[in-house]
Design a binder for these strands. Structure first.
Lengths: 127, 127
DNA sequence: CTGTATCCCCAACGATACTG
DNA sequence: CAGTATCGTTGGGGATACAG
């Protein structure tokens, strides 16, 4: 539950209203969102595939992030008919797809300035 | 022999990219960092100017963010000699400057999917 | 298989007062 | 002008158990 009157919350609203940059940033900030977008884009369109790829993520968090990304119109859930139990396929919207090149640009930027603690994703989780 | 098109190979590629993505994302995540980089780039090279532009930020937080960005080699502090009291000019490094086009891309992406009440900051005006 | 419900932790955010 | 010290608040991330 959020306190809408806290200065923290007010600041958040101010920033969101101030600049498109912030609304964009809000989409890809957080520990997992950008990776989820990237992962879906690269073919992991199922909950279990995402969980496998982002091996350190908990189901709770993955579910939460997916819901947020859906709300932000980055992805859509597509029920897979006649599967038991029910299956859901995740697909990026055009808005989500257009985000990918920017993430790639960020990747390339990161590659130009490598950090020492740069290790594969599964171990990339900081406690 | 590797199949470059196998999902395995794609995954491998993805994992490597994700890693770089994370280090990059770490730099611009946070509520203020991207905005600060942008603001310095657009000419607000003094503490007081930044504080003025990001009117809702507290000195404590601004100072903290600037220090982090300095540690991440995004900017450098340049003392202004023979000023009383002492003045500090902030300047982006090449690493920081190369980040700007990506932030602009994010900005433009945000503009394509406008939200209500989204007012650009002066620093966020892209040519 | 794809989620929710609960509860907890802590790092980031913030207000205020103070300093060279 | 450009910070630091101190301390309170917040909410995202997480562990675990449970559910349709």
């Amino acid at each position: 539950m959020k306190k809408e009157t806290s200065s923290n919350s007010l600041n958040e609203q101010f920033l969101f209203q101030s600049c498109e940059l912030n609304s964009a940033l809000k989409v890809i900030s957080g520990r997992w969102k950008a990776q989820i977008v990237y992962s879906i884009w690269s073919g992991n369109d199922r909950f279990s595939l995402l969980k496998q790829e982002l091996s350190a993520i908990s189901e709770q968090v993955l579910s939460r992030q997916l819901k947020e990304l859906e709300t932000q119109a980055i992805l859509v859930k597509i029920p897979i008919p006649e599967t038991v139990p029910a299956g859901i396929s995740y697909r990026l919207t055009s808005k989500g797809i257009e985000l990918v090149p920017i993430l790639q640009a960020l990747c390339n930027w990161g590659k130009q300035y490598p950090e020492e603690n740069c290790i594969p994703l599964s171990a990339c989780v900081t406690g």
